[in-house]
Design a protein around this nucleic acid. Structure first.
Length: 518
RNA sequence: GCUCCCGUAGUUUAAUGGAUAGAAUGCCUCCCUCCGAAGGAGGCGAUGCAGGUUCGAUUCCUGCCGGGAGCACCA
């Protein structure tokens, strides 16, 4: 419909001799300004009345000129909701989305949880708009964090198959490293793990990794994520190290015994002991990713916003190392913000943090045992604002299930579904009531909202829309009776069906469960 | 010090250079004989400051003030 209006304007402008103009046809801020509006008269510098008079568009009932804007009101027939498919913006494209990527041996912290929530929604937005999506998890299974855990396990004689023991071992190791009491020992373990030179430590690592990974996969499944591919730092490290070594003097240079890249700022890729750092591992990861998915078009990496500058430099280095593989492709880092408590930033490296899991459990309890509602609550809290911004987390308020929240939208959907169940037993009449027009006028914009959210990789557009729809539906629901004396209007039935479908699809791209009952 | 990001009702936030800056929460009124009140209706309340570009600026540019993040062997 929007396209049809744009085409008509283009033709009318050409007929007026106004030529090309960068006008837009968009949803006006206020319903009083119609279903679509255009600034064409302003940007093309023509008389709005004259332009409007030239427009005759099928499905448009009324064209109104207000000031210099032209507003379009669709006819009831054009509004009658039908199955709305999303614009297939990314048809034929392959998109790699890397997210979650925790340090194994450590409980999933809230930052990982937020990254998972954002990454999953972005993956779903691309799928909804036609892309083939590969979900990638890139856990850290080697490095200082793991060394701390292995140190802790060997000190505490902890059971490496017990997830709680792993967490405790990491906390102990981290503390001993930070206060310096075991720094040398842990560094030694770290090197030995890289070199696989100590069977006892390597065995603890292997068992701990398996436990941690199984636990992680279970939690991700509860959150609605199933990964297509898992790459590990133990794989990317050696690959990256070799690539970096082979490019010393070309892309990298040696400095103080380390191998560095000088970009926007200088970063160490191989440390002075010759071990690959996070930077070199990213280089190796890119090699692994392109081997597995050589035909990708877009590669996204979702991590905390503090890594923004890091990725700018690393992607810069990767573009030089892989000139042919990156030509015409998009490599992008997507930031997720911190979840901030009133007490300040939560460090992932300190022991007494709220884990992703404990948060989910607390929310579930507050949601009367409903994990789907709890998942909806936390996901909505993360996705309702623009990505990359910090999420203010007041436990009291975030646990509340009222207002601008996931459960609010879930509840509206449940009401629509309950109504449809009732309607199944009702007689369907032909008369058309006018009261639902506001719902119809909102419903038509859903595909554009999803398209925009996908293009900008901003799920919050969908969250905002779905809440608006839930609110309008609730208002309509409280004000009107759909089923009277066992009869429902066929038109109303179609509208409610469209609301149900739209809310369900909206929640799906957000990764929020859509309950049948609450 | 250098670089980047962010300042919108008391609070959490939305807005594609467009029309009367939209919600939620909080506070003040109302509404369940009736499809689910975890709901609905109404009221109060906001673009940090100063310039600039533009027919039009929350949006773009400059300066200032305030907050956050990053900047060599962690991830």
């Amino acid at each position: 419909m929007r396209e049809r209006i744009a085409q008509a304007i283009k033709q009318a402008l050409a007929a007026m001799g106004a030529g090309e103009a960068p006008f837009v046809v968009e949803r006006p801020a206020a319903l009083a300004h119609g279903d679509y509006a255009t600034n064409a008269a302003i940007v093309a510098k023509v008389d709005a009345q004259e332009l409007a008079a030239k427009l005759h568009i099928e499905g448009v009932e009324k064209i109104e000129v207000v000031g210099k804007f032209i507003n379009f009101f669709l006819s009831r027939e054009a509004l009658i909701p039908k199955i709305q498919s999303f614009p297939q913006l990314y048809a034929g494209k392959t998109v790699l989305v890397e997210y979650t990527s925790p340090n194994l041996f450590k409980p999933l912290h809230i930052g990982n949880l937020i990254g998972n929530i954002l990454g999953e929604s972005i993956a779903r937005l691309f799928q909804a708009t036609g892309a083939e999506v590969k979900r990638i998890n890139y856990p850290s299974d080697i490095g200082l964090t793991v060394a701390k855990g292995v140190w802790g396990l060997s000190k505490t004689k902890g059971d490496p198959t017990d997830i709680a023991a792993l967490g405790a071992a990491y906390v102990a190791g981290n503390a001993a490293y930070e206060d310096g009491s075991a720094k040398a020992e842990i560094d030694e373990i770290n090197t030995a793990l890289y070199e696989n030179s100590n069977p006892e430590w390597s065995d603890l690592r292997k068992k701990g990794i398996a436990t941690s990974l199984a636990h992680l996969d279970g939690l991700c499944a509860r959150l609605g994520t199933t990964f297509d591919t898992e790459f590990f730092e133990s794989e990317s490290g050696p690959v990256g190290r070799d690539i970096v070594r082979a490019n010393i003097g070309k892309v990298f240079e040696e400095s103080d015994g380390a191998v560095v890249y000088r970009g926007a700022h200088t970063r160490v890729f191989l440390n002075s002991r010759g071990l690959p750092t996070y930077e070199a591992k990213e280089v190796g990861l890119f090699e692994l990713k392109t081997k597995a998915h050589p035909n990708f078009d877009i590669s996204l990496t979702v991590t905390g916003s503090e890594q923004k500058d890091f990725f700018a430099v690393v992607f810069d280095a990767i573009a030089k190392l892989f000139a042919t593989q990156t030509a015409g492709k998009v490599l992008r880092h997507i930031s997720n913000g911190f979840l901030r408590l009133t007490t300040g930033k939560m460090s992932s490296r300190l022991g007494n943090v709220i884990t992703g899991e404990s948060l989910l459990e607390d929310l579930t309890e507050a949601a009367r045992g409903r994990e789907d509602v709890a998942v909806g609550a936390i996901k909505y809290a993360v996705l309702k604002s623009g990505s990359g911004k910090d999420i203010m987390f007041d436990p009291e308020k975030s646990l509340s299930l009222e207002g601008d929240s996931g459960p609010y939208v879930q509840y509206a959907l449940v009401r629509a579904r309950a109504l449809l169940r009732k309607a199944a037993d009702a007689a369907v009449t032909q008369h058309v009531t006018s009261e639902s027009a506001i719902l119809e006028r909102l419903l038509i914009h859903f595909p554009d909202v999803v398209a925009r959210a996908a293009k900008e990789m901003e799920p919050h557009h969908v969250a905002t829309y779905v809440t608006e729809l839930a609110s309008v539906f609730n208002g309509w629901y409280a004000h009107e009776r759909a089923i009277v004396d066992g009869k429902i209007s066929g038109h109303t039935l179609k509208v409610v069906e469209a609301v149900e479908r739209t809310l369900a699809q909206g929640l799906r791209v957000l990764g929020i469960p859509a309950p049948e009952e609450m």
